[in-house]
């Protein structure tokens, strides 16, 4: 049904289908474009901007931008890498990301992106904001200190779980993820088996009583950078 579309990413010829996003076509071709708010099972959100690429010389979010014939996409240029570094560094200083005692460490996509981008320390002053922790649910806790407002949980609850547990509240610096109940997550219909629990890229949503189960060295990003599984596809195709 769909027409084939030809374009290039960093000079490599890529074929996509009409209606696909640049991020989807790149992933299928084995080219990794860094992302945080995007997830293959969710509607694109275009909010974190980490997947920014240059399309014919203009910055676009690869997760929302459709493929187009003859487009020249730049992904790994010095300029784009610097932009992504800046975005990730800002996420680190804007929240409270204490990797040393976070259960998600080693499996965290934000941390893994920082590793991949070679960040040794953010160049911005830390905010150290005061944020709340919600432990009202018997099996799940929510730590707003680590939330990067990617909206994956908001979308997952609606699109995958068929519920409506979360909603964004406020704007700008005051924006946060709120619950669809005034007294916390424990008063919503959220269940520990819901997809939103595992879809959080950081340690903001965690299951209770299972922390630190995987030893250091065996966690997702201990040995291999994030995106390696996508890049392995390309190596195989060659």
């Amino acid at each position: 049904m769909s027409a084939t579309i030809h374009f290039t990413i960093d000079g490599v010829e890529v074929t996509g289908k009409a209606g696909q996003t640049i991020l989807q076509a790149a992933s299928e071709a084995g080219i990794y474009i860094p992302r945080l708010c995007a997830h293959k099972d969710l509607t694109p959100h275009g909010s974190c901007r980490v997947c920014t690429v240059m399309v014919n010389g203009r910055p676009q979010a690869a997760c929302t931008q459709p493929v187009s014939d003859g487009a020249i996409v730049e992904n790994e240029t010095a300029e784009i890498k610097e932009l992504r570094r800046n975005l990730v560094e800002m996420l680190f200083v804007e929240g409270n990301h204490y990797c040393m005692f976070c259960e998600k460490s080693g499996n965290c996509e934000l941390q893994a992106l920082a590793y991949r981008l070679g960040i040794q320390a953010p160049r911005y002053p830390y905010f150290f904001p005061q944020r709340a922790l919600d432990a009202t649910h018997p099996d799940i806790f929510i730590d707003h200190n680590r939330c990067i407002l990617c909206g994956r949980c908001v979308r997952a609850s609606k699109e995958l779980d068929g519920k409506n547990v979360f909603q964004f509240i406020g704007r700008g610096a005051h924006k946060r993820v709120g619950f669809n109940a005034p007294d916390g997550l424990g008063h919503t219909d959220a269940a520990v088996s819901d997809r939103f629990v595992s879809i959080c890229p950081v340690g903001a949503i965690l299951k209770k009583r299972v922390g630190y189960a995987i030893p250091v060295g065996q966690r997702l990003f201990d040995k291999r950078p994030i995106g390696s599984e996508i890049e392995a596809r390309r190596a195989k195709g060659k």
């Binding site: 990797c99 320390a121 953010p122 830390y126 150290f128 944020r131």
Partner: peptide
């Protein structure tokens, strides 16, 4: 700057909240 405390405050910085 060696270690997380030197680079981001680390555990002592928990009092910053």
């Amino acid at each position: 700057a060696l270690g997380d405390c030197a680079t981001m405050g680390g555990l002592p910085a928990m009092r910053n909240h």
